[in-house]
Design a binder for these strands. Structure first.
Lengths: 202, 202
DNA sequence: TTACCTTTGGGACAAATGTCCCGTTTTATT
DNA sequence: AATAAAACGGGACATTTGTCCCAAAGGTAA
């Protein structure tokens, strides 16, 4: 994806940068750009009328956002907010719409990307509803560890769709329950260690 | 979509029909066809290792299934099972892969379809996690009513990711709580009536 | 019809989660 | 350094949901 963009620099594509904590796409508004993250981590969340947030994914390097709205010609359905400092390619929506039709490679990539995202979303929605929170927590820790970032508890709780209170409880219970494997649980474990824990998870 | 298919009948596309309760795509296996439902209702669900099912959508007339697996070249991630009797166009996967590249219109439709599905999935995952079950229940009833079908309680419960016991409780509570608007709640209300209830929902 | 199975409805209790609240620790700002 | 703001950790209690159980109602095959 980055190759494509680097080559296309002609068509009004610019490089934008945002400080941590900036919400650069707002739910309900119309974005003028499609962004492809070059560096940094963002969260992608829906805020419901009752004030609660649901984070449905974290976006990192090479991932795209805002494309759904161009394809469907709708307003943004979620907020995108930076967690770390972020630089991103900004492609004007009109430009993107043209590219989408003209460029077969981009088109193929898009299809794959969307397909992947649907599958991920489904799988996650499923295990988040059907397994105890512990399981989701371990998977989230693994994600975090692989991306080499450290999310705040609030962010992690929002991702798991529980309160911070429940989040804390879950961690303690994991430590206490599985005396052997979990007693050393902490939030900065390596992907390998977490992989091990996930496998042992009864 | 149906137009497209009707025209393409040449390329090995056949019409398949299944009795109610038939699981014609199995999680973990490789399907040899992409299906487009011509008539009837199916459920699309993931079965987790612990035996619980998560229905993430009901598919009806004109909707496609199995395309994600072709795009990503993976095994099926969910089961598709008929609820009513179903007839569907069966497109051999290889054929579909060709069409996808060759036919710009199909390609565009696919993109839109996937984009729509992502948005729906996200929105649903969000309100299902952040709102009390009542809300999801009303929306499900509306869906059911619009599609003019009657799902079993088990199916509805699986869709809401709760047990049948909780499902029953929720219905009773809805009836008892909002004495005025809900007392007449039943499972065969019209879309209009349900729309009204949803609007009044505090 | 009878036997059997599935669906439905709900009581009683246990487990999980949310809410409210407080004090401590960390981080950012002046 | 001093102060304010945000993040963290957890007690106590209310609410929600699951589990286990039983019983009634409807459908189906011998």
């Amino acid at each position: 994806m980055e190759r494509l963009l680097a080559g296309e620099q002609a068509g009004g594509i610019t490089l934008a940068s945002f400080p941590p904590g900036e919400r650069f796409i707002r739910q309900g508004e119309t974005s003028r750009y499609v962004y492809v993250i070059r560096d940094g981590i963002t969260k992608c969340y829906i805020r419901e009328d009752n004030g609660k947030d649901y984070i449905f994914e974290f976006l990192g390097k090479g991932e795209i956002t805002g494309e759904l709205e161009v394809i469907r010609k709708t307003v943004c359905l979620c907020n995108i907010e930076t967690i770390t400092a972020v630089t991103a390619y900004a492609i004007p929506t009109g430009e993107f719409a043209l590219l989408m039709r003209a460029d077969a490679e981009l088109n193929g990539l898009l299809l794959e990307e969307l397909a992947t995202r649907i599958q991920q979303t489904c799988v996650r929605a499923s295990y988040q509803q059907l397994y105890p929170v512990e399981y989701g927590l371990l998977r989230l820790l693994k994600l975090q560890s692989e991306a080499k970032v450290r999310f705040s508890k609030k962010n992690m709780a929002d991702y798991l769709a529980i309160t911070v209170r429940s989040f804390n409880r879950t961690i303690r219970q994991l430590r206490e329950k599985n005396v052997v494997s979990m007693e050393g649980l902490h939030l900065d474990m390596s992907p390998q260690e977490l992989e091990e824990l996930l496998r042992r998870w009864e």
